[in-house]
Design a protein around this nucleic acid. Sequence first.
DNA 1: TATTGTTATACTCTATAACTATA
DNA 2: TATAGTTATAGAGTATAACAATA
Lengths: 135, 135
Amino acid sequence: MLAELTGFSVKLVWILGYSLLQRAIDDPAITPLRFSMLELVGRNPGTAQVLLGNALGLSRSAATLAIDFWAERGCVERRIGATDRRSFGVYLTEAGARELERLRQRVLQADAALVEGLTADEVAELNRLLGKIHL
Amino acid sequence: MLAELTGFSVKLVWILGYSLLQRAIDDPAITPLRFSMLELVGRNPGTAQVLLGNALGLSRSAATLAIDFWAERGCVERRIGATDRRSFGVYLTEAGARELERLRQRVLQADAALVEGLTADEVAELNRLLGKIHL
DNA sequence: TATTGTTATACTCTATAACTATA
DNA sequence: TATAGTTATAGAGTATAACAATA
């Protein structure tokens, strides 16, 4: 019965995708969530921490820790906002930009491995159907 | 960029499916994993704990706890094996059979809600493509 | 009063390892 | 020696709540 549920299939594919991602990225500490956070900062430089956390469904404390992770590695930096001095803008450092570019290659490679059994048309159709559900 | 990755889409759909499942099932303690375990016992009565755990990718200790959860609720029982007295067979109780039937309805309902935006043909195609990846 | 970010704390889930009983 | 199951313990990840600074 489980095999017929879309939700169950999706979970199995996610488990597989997670393990492919861990293999493509050398460092087990760089989880999909943490990569997503770095990518988000790279695409939206200067965004406040709360907003970054919200975008990923994190609590404020979890967002703090996720930013801490990259800050300790010298990949992002917090800059006090000019208008609102309670909040920071978060920015990529130069090292962070290089790291993000490096990780993007690995992530794309892992995603390609995930769908390697499908034709290009099938991948497009799969993405369309998944998008129709979550958008 | 994240939106174009199959792995990322799959994760978003899973998050949505998880929350629909939690809403369909009244008790937050009954997680997808725990439901899967009960379903597995129902379909394969008498299976040893190690095998049940393996099927769900659990360690032996995690399998013990998952079975404990249902045993405490009176839904499954361990019976000492006749041939190998180290291992148990795990069986549904009558209450467990009723509970499983009740949960199946809820799970099917949640899964239908997950794909409600898709036509029947699209659901079939989605399941086919997901199955092609994880099988 | 409300919000941003930090910190302390607790909770859940998991794995590892040590233990027992059987094989 | 190896395996099934249990238990104790530790680690990762999360949320909640209390706090300081600012709005």
